[in-house]
């Protein structure tokens, strides 16, 4: 299923601050997007895709925001663009995010995507998109499965 939301979805709407103070990450999924769309956390399933407009994830630095989406089973977030801390956090914890500035994807769209090359095909509208490529270091982090694994392996950051 593809869920579509608007611009400026802030982190309080993704996961309210009152639920963030926990290490029991599964509980985050019970409240994901609660104040935006109370039905979302009840219906979201493994492999679903969240699509949004501009500035997705603005507001707090809480990593619990991408974690809540990941815990709920969301496989990919596509947005016209992302707030910077959310974007870094998503890559760091291994939640796939693609930036597509000109998408017109609608609720329930039939999407086929490839995270490797950032190609997204909207079969409902017969449109094809190419996501903005990631900087190399982000690609490396994503390919290692997140920053924890990356540092476990490399012990420090490496450029180029």
């Amino acid at each position: 299923m593809v869920y579509v939301y608007g611009d400026n979805i802030d982190t309080d709407r993704i996961i309210p601050g009152k639920y963030t103070k926990t290490l029991d990450l599964e509980t985050l999924a019970d409240h994901v997007m609660e104040d935006l769309d109370p039905m979302f956390c009840k219906s979201v399933k493994q492999g679903d895709v969240v699509v949004a407009g501009y500035n997705f994830g603005c507001g707090s630095s809480r990593e619990q925001a991408p974690l809540a989406l990941k815990q709920a089973g969301v496989a990919l977030v596509i947005a016209k663009d992302f707030a910077r801390i959310f974007f870094r956090n998503a890559i760091n914890i291994g939640l796939a995010v693609l930036e597509i500035g000109d998408h017109t994807i609608e609720h329930g769209a039939d999407l086929v995507y490839n995270l490797e090359d950032g190609k997204v095909i909207d079969q409902s509208q017969g449109k094809e998109y190419n996501a903005t490529p990631l900087p190399d270091i982000m690609l490396d982090i994503l390919n290692e499965g997140g920053l924890v694994n990356y540092l476990n392996k490399h012990k420090n950051y490496q450029l180029g």
Partner: peptide, 9 residues
Amino acid sequence: GVGSTDLAA
């Protein structure tokens, strides 16, 4: 500002 994993790193 960064998130928790960046901070850990």
